[in-house]
């Protein structure tokens, strides 16, 4: 068998005449973090529910760890952990009781279950509230409890639907650390989100959803090259010199444009080159008598890719 944990071919979901998910192909490899991105209503959650066999497919095939979620949902659900959007737990029960219920549904032997529950709670730093009622938990704690459930389940694949929405920056950071922890444990992670910069920092590959179709797929850098064009952008800020004039002659430099809104006079310039030209640029500025105040490598931002892509879509329409 190949190294893919999830293989989707021509997956289709129709609600009446609308194509919520329109013949998508998707492969998720063992041990990677894969991001499903796109605006609300683009078909991300529907795709996830079909992967789990919680919604019927209208066509196409899905293979999760060698099982078909339509015909063998129990086998799939035994091996895949799912954290729904705004996950809920039974408020009147404690964290331990909630996980114990899940453990019973999974038919984990009682003696193992207690150990696995406390280990899982340890791994998400909730061990101290194990016997507190979930009603007292904050949103971030609930999300972490959801991760603990996946850890306890010893899932091979974790599917997280909007795991960071509604969390404060600190809680988001902690949650992303836990997601990296899952990856280290060898779990393939599928994250759906619209919070791009957060997702960018953890994802190995992403797929951009648009109206039920996958518009773009690949690593963040690949997507940037595809949408923003190839090239190596850097940011230069210097005083006492005409930057655009000075840099035009540097080998490899393609364009030099002012950064930020026109006429804002920030003094910063965006330089696109076909390779890393930072050393040459620094040298040229200093030798031309300018004082270099800033020189930064610009990572392609997913946000930029996303905005640019949808802008192009709108312009084309």
């Amino acid at each position: 068998m190949s190294d893919n944990v999830i293989e989707v071919r021509g997956l289709l979901k129709l609600y009446g005449a609308t194509r919520a998910v329109d013949a998508i192909d998707l492969d998720i490899r063992r041990g990677e973090i894969f991001g499903l991105l796109g605006p609300n209503g683009a078909g991300k959650t529907t795709t996830i529910l079909m992967l789990l066999g919680l919604t019927e497919t209208s066509g196409g095939t899905v293979n999760v760890l060698g099982f078909d979620p339509v015909r063998q949902p129990l086998q799939v659900k035994r091996r895949v952990g799912y954290l729904p959007d705004a996950v809920g737990f039974y408020d009147h029960l404690t964290a331990r009781e909630n996980l114990r219920y899940t453990a019973r549904l999974l038919a984990i032997p009682r003696r193992d279950a207690e150990k696995r529950i406390s280990d899982a709670m340890e791994s998400v730093q909730l061990a101290d509230v194990l016997d507190k009622r979930v009603a007292t938990f904050s949103r971030g704690m609930r999300q972490r409890l959801g991760i603990a459930e996946i850890v306890m389940k010893q899932a091979e694949v974790a599917i997280l639907d909007e795991p960071t929405s509604g969390l404060d920056p600190h809680a988001t950071f902690e949650l992303l650390e836990m997601i990296r922890g899952l990856k280290k444990a060898g779990v393939a992670v599928l994250i759906s989100s619209h919070l791009l910069d957060r997702v960018q920092s953890v994802c190995d590959r992403v797929a951009l959803f648009n109206r039920g179709k996958i518009a773009l797929m690949g690593s963040v850098v690949e997507l940037a090259n595809q949408v923003l064009g190839a090239g190596h952008p850097i940011l230069v800020e210097a005083s006492g010199i005409d930057i655009a004039g000075a840099l035009r002659g540097v080998e490899g430099v393609q364009t030099v444009v002012p950064e930020g809104p026109q006429g804002s006079g920030s003094g910063a310039w965006r330089v696109i080159a076909d390779r890393d030209v930072r050393a040459a640029v620094a040298q040229r500025i200093v030798s031309s008598g300018g004082s270099l105040t800033r020189l930064a490598d610009l990572q392609p931002s997913l946000e930029e890719v996303y905005t640019r892509y949808f802008q192009e879509q709108r312009d084309a329409a």
Partner: peptide, 14 residues
């Protein structure tokens, strides 16, 4: 309403 349904149904039960 408590949003527990999808989590419970993602466990191996029908």
């Amino acid at each position: 309403n408590r949003r527990t349904l999808s989590r419970v149904l993602s466990q191996p039960i029908y």
